[in-house]
């Protein structure tokens, strides 16, 4: 365990491997969740008519909030399971930034710890800043 927190252990090369692994894992997880939700959705509603996408109605609370998506997905509502996959997909690059922050902290690169924190703060503001209008 001690090794993980030492500077020598984490050369730039390892950080690159970690970031690369993280990105691909995120995309694969998201795809699997979307595929399972989508397959069930087609199974249950495949024969139904397509909603009128020509008119923008916007999605309900069940698809636009964390709690709504989680609640629906745990009830095995197929559309919410797809939306959970969408959430995993959006989270992937954000987690990548968090992952880089961790790496810069281990490298004790103060300048880049600061720069990465700014990027994270902007994204957090975008999520929680109430700017959906």
């Amino acid at each position: 365990m001690k090794k993980i927190f030492s500077k020598v252990f984490w050369a730039d090369k390892d950080v690159e491997q970690l970031v690369g692994q993280m990105l691909i894992t995120g995309v694969l997880t998201a795809s699997i969740v979307v595929l399972s939700g989508g397959a069930l959705y087609l199974w249950q509603h495949g024969k139904g008519g397509v909603p009128d996408y020509r008119v923008f109605a916007g999605e309900g609370v069940g698809f636009t909030t964390f709690s709504g998506i989680f609640k629906g997905a745990f009830k095995f509502n197929t559309r919410e399971i797809i939306q959970l996959g969408v959430l995993v997909l959006i989270a992937t690059p954000i987690l990548r930034v968090a992952c880089s922050l961790f790496a810069f902290i281990l490298e004790r690169d103060k300048l880049y710890i600061f720069i990465t924190m700014i990027v994270l703060c902007i994204i957090l503001f975008s999520i929680f800043g109430g700017i959906k209008g």
Binding site: S31, V34, G38, Y41, P51, G58, E59, F63, I82
Partner: peptide, 14 residues
């Protein structure tokens, strides 16, 4: 804002 519809997202992403 409700721009992301699961019925569209599913085939588009995959």
């Amino acid at each position: 804002r409700g721009y992301m519809d699961p019925g569209i997202a599913f085939p588009v992403i995959l």
